[in-house]
């Protein structure tokens, strides 16, 4: 873990407590359609199912019913010019089942962004038009400053 190393498992109690865990968890958009109480996470590779359960229960106070994990192999890619093969890192994906009453759908984060983009484009077009008008007006008197005429 953080300053220490990951301790090996020892049977019996009390289990070793981890005080400064260094694990990360990303909530990701599920590739396939999932039940409403299932959330998909991308987690640290060294995390076990128990780690994931404890992490969510203790740090995020979420009611976890079941955890299933798989390791997704990173994609290999051949370089176009030199032909060598590169591989992305493997990632651990965890499917966390919450209580039946819980409902979670991955939110659309960029719904407002479309409108913003349109507004920005519009303002850019307006300014472009304005500049074009200014140029047209000053065609016959080049070098005249903008404040010279209305």
């Amino acid at each position: 873990m953080s300053t220490r190393w990951y301790p090996i498992y020892q049977r019996g109690n009390p289990q070793l407590r981890i005080f400064l865990p260094n694990f990360w968890m990303k909530l990701i958009r599920p590739a396939e359609e999932q039940p409403k109480n299932v959330a998909t996470f991308s987690v640290s590779m060294q995390m076990t199912k128990y780690d994931i359960k404890n992490y969510l229960e203790k740090i995020y106070k979420l009611p976890v019913v079941d955890v299933r994990t798989r390791i997704e192999m990173g994609k290999t890619k051949r370089d176009q010019t030199f032909g060598y093969v590169t591989k992305e890192d493997d990632v651990k994906i965890a499917y966390v089942t919450l209580l039946k009453t819980e409902e979670f759908t991955f939110p659309d984060l960029f719904s407002k962004k479309e409108e913003q983009k349109k507004a920005e484009e519009k303002s850019l077009d307006d300014s472009k038009q304005g500049f074009k008008r200014f140029l047209d007006r000053n065609k016959k008197r080049p070098g005249t400053p903008g404040w010279y005429s209305i």
Binding site: K26, L27, K113
Partner: peptide, 15 residues
């Protein structure tokens, strides 16, 4: 917030 929305930024910052 005690739910999965803790994994997301404040909705004000989304866009």
């Amino acid at each position: 917030r005690q739910d999965l929305m803790e994994f997301f930024d404040d909705p004000k910052n989304w866009s």
